[in-house]
Amino acid sequence: MEVVAQMKETEIQEILFPTMLAFVPLLESKREEITQARKTFKYGETDRHQLDVYYPPTSEGKPPILIYVYGGGFVSGGRTLPTPIDLAYGNLGLYFAKRGFVTIIPDYRLAPGTTFPGPAEDLRDALSWAVANLREDADIDSIFFLGHSAGGVHTLTLLLEPSILASAPSLRIKGVAISSAPFHFGPSGIEVIGREPVNMYYGSPEETQAKNPLALLNAASPELIKALPPLALIRCERDPAWFKVVGQDFNVALAEKGVTPVQILAEAHNHISVSLALSTGEGEKQAEGEQWAAETAAWMNRLTASSTGT
């Protein structure tokens, strides 16, 4: 985390590779543990329809399920990244598995190979796969999502685009955490870098404006809002300025809809370090930078306990 603290820049393009490379040695020490916890399955027809499952080392009863949706600016990303950062996301899978969650990291289709709402439909299908295939190993009535950056957009699209879950009404989501998502792309007075991939995903600037998460929330019916699962919003202290602005806009819109999310601060983190810091501690000792994840796990456990009456 010292390297992150020394970075003066916050824009993603500037901090992406320096942040990733800073965590390579820490993640490398966890290689065997990460790879042993992981199994890979196919949940659809294409190469992008694969997912990794990280199983808890031990569990009493059936553990809850967490589906993690990574980012990548709508046009890149994968559950396994190229070397030397190939253990990224696996470290997150291991972290939550060791805390009692069957953790799923699905790939999803990317633009320009698909457009809105293709990735959210893939998440629905990954959710369906989990319900169908993990019922003997996990609690399929306690399924959570954690979406980061563009993955947060796709997760919110899954919730807020009425047609997606309407085709699978039996699927239930216990709670959703969104980490540093671009809730819209038009913050007043602030330049948004990298609009082209966004418009490529949505189809045009006009479609971007009409279908971003804030727009979907504003257009949501009272019935859809009432059906939303509990929400947690995770913000990184060192996120780009425009992420903070659109995050506040989304909070205001939620309040107007009568929705009060749990707020979690990823203290000292930039946009990239927030997931890379997980599983970098020794033994059971919490690593610096893991507090946000500990709070998120505690929130999910409270929701699980409240539904079981324990």
Score class of each variant (00 low, 15 high):
Y68A: 04
A266V: 03
R124Y: 06
Y43V: 07
R135L: 05
L214M: 08
G186A: 14
I190K: 15
L228T: 07
P197H: 11
I234K: 01
A266C: 02
I173Q: 07
G118V: 13
L171I: 14
D52K: 08
T80V: 15
F185G: 01
V153L: 15
P169S: 02
S204C: 02
A138Y: 08
F144E: 02
T155F: 14
V274R: 02
P63W: 08
I225S: 00
I140V: 15
P25D: 00
N91C: 03
A150H: 09
K98Y: 11
A168Q: 13
F101I: 11
I105Q: 03
V198Q: 15
T304H: 13
A293L: 03
A232Q: 10
T35S: 12
Y54P: 05
A215Y: 07
I105K: 01
G283F: 01
K226W: 02
N91D: 04
T280N: 00
E33V: 14
L123E: 05
V245G: 01
N199H: 15
A168E: 11
D86T: 11
L158G: 12
G309Q: 08
R38P: 06
E33L: 15
L51D: 09
E60F: 14
I143R: 12
D47M: 10
S29L: 09
G72S: 04
I164K: 08
V4I: 15
A120F: 05
Y108V: 06
N301S: 06
I105T: 00
L21A: 03
A177L: 08
S128G: 12
S188Q: 15
A215W: 09
I264T: 03
S221V: 08
S188H: 13
A268W: 03
V69K: 00
V176P: 04
E161V: 10
L231D: 09
E2Y: 01
P213H: 06
T10Y: 08
W292H: 11
P222D: 10
G247T: 00
E32S: 13
A268T: 08
I190G: 06
G78I: 09
P112Y: 08
G93L: 10
I234T: 09
V192M: 03
R135Q: 14
Q286H: 10
L26E: 04
A268Q: 03
S149H: 04
A298F: 07
D52F: 08
A297N: 06
A293N: 01
W129D: 09
P162K: 13
A253M: 01
A97V: 14
